[in-house]
Write a protein that binds this DNA or RNA. Structure first.
Lengths: 235, 235
DNA sequence: ATTACCGATGGTGCATGCAGCATGGCGAAA
DNA sequence: TTTCGCCATGCTGCATGCACCATCGGTAAT
């Protein structure tokens, strides 16, 4: 298990005790960010000590994310981080493709200037990491992008489903990023460029289809890289 | 709060101690079946005693279903059963309409003879309750129907979303059934007839569209009956 | 040498105690 | 009589203890 994952998550709790909601989000992020990898066993007592709380809220947080299939709780063993089987990944992406088209087909949120600003900021970040695909930074940008898209989904139910599917796909996708070369960085830039255009046009439907397109590309890369061995490390 | 809801749920635990999963499902069913109505406060200690367990697993079960918005946990008050605001109902139904069309558009499950049998059984049950719309029985048939559709969804992610949206819509829908006359019984029969045809044709896509159609009708009835006052009781 | 058993270890599952919060009722003051 | 404030009550949030379970390593028997 990774040594000091604490350092990697900027928002430190040093001052305030985190609630169940915070713990849940943080654990999910750590799984998506590959700070926890399949096979790792999340020990309640360990996390409890790290967060300065008792096992109870940690248990609660883990219990809430069990239904995503990312963590399987086994009595007497631990909370094992699971690798989603390829079949399930296929199902997740199949749904994500459809959900993306629904972003524009359902009651939309209003595109405001702030969203455009955030998009440009992400685009700049994406440019900065350029060929040097430090997966940590890439993942960060990707996560912010997902949050941005979420904010653009007016239908709260769709937003919930979108987020769930994102979490299910994220860890696998980020594993692909490690394997694939800088092409994923270029792809991210391309996606953000398309996104900026769509948002400048105030066209939510276009935003959805941009997502649909690039999720499709992403899944193609998963199939391309994840079936082969991923022997070259990022060191 | 309803007096002895225990009687209404056939599977009694008299022999075996229920797990968190069981408790979760049972609470959800009770909300859908209107045994718990908006405003009721689910008290952990109460449920714990009923199930013969401690508060801990009950807390866990309630915590897991919090994200659906059907119960809101308020410190010092209780776990309040919430009535979804009309706006959220609209969002749920908007998504349900789209999800229905995805049943046939995604990797399907195989339609087997058993499914057809279950459909015919439901049709018979629907006929039996005819004009006498005892909401309890209606809801039971409706719930079995939803389970049946779930089994026909091959994509497990879609199945999960479908179920979540069903739970969110169910309590509201069942409240409409109380208000509306026997027309909902007829509508259910019509839906099951359509469903039987589609399944006899082995046409999953048709199954999805049948759902899409009747969910649409259902939402129309919600708008028709739920905005007006629901003064006539079922006695 | 190999295999079967058993106990030590470390984890989750559940029970329970206690602190904190919200609320309603009662009493005192205006 | 009305209103303000305080306390009793009941519930959730969290901490902690204990029982059960899984696993692994050592030991004894074959």
């Amino acid at each position: 298990m990774s040594a000091d994952v604490t350092q990697s998550t900027p928002p430190v709790w040093s001052d305030r005790k985190p609630g169940v909601e915070d713990i849940q989000r943080l654990i999910l992020k750590r799984i998506c960010f590959l700070e926890y990898t399949p096979g790792d066993r999340l020990k309640e007592a360990e996390l409890a000590e790290e967060f300065g709380v008792s096992r109870t809220p940690v248990r609660d947080a883990i219990s809430r994310i069990n239904h995503l299939g990312l963590v399987e709780t086994i009595n007497g063993v631990g909370n094992v981080v699971m690798e989603l089987p390829p079949e399930k990944i296929a199902q997740v992406y199949e749904i994500r493709l459809h959900l993306a088209t629904l972003i524009g087909a359902t009651t939309p949120a209003q595109i405001e200037e702030s969203h455009l600003d955030r998009t440009r900021d992400l685009l700049q970040q994406a440019h900065q990491l350029g060929g040097q695909v430090d997966s940590r930074q890439y993942v960060s940008v990707n996560d912010q992008l997902n949050t941005l898209i979420s904010d653009l989904i007016g239908n709260s139910v769709l937003r919930s489903f979108w987020t769930q599917a994102y979490y299910q796909a994220a860890s696998t996708w980020h594993r692909v990023v490690d394997c694939a070369g800088p092409e994923v960085g270029d792809a991210l830039v391309a996606e953000l460029v398309d996104l900026e255009t769509a948002m400048a046009e105030q066209d939510i439907q276009a935003v959805g289809y941009v997502q649909r397109i690039h999720i499709g590309y992403g899944y193609t890369r998963i199939k391309k890289y994840l079936l082969k061995n991923c022997d070259d490390d990022v060191s």
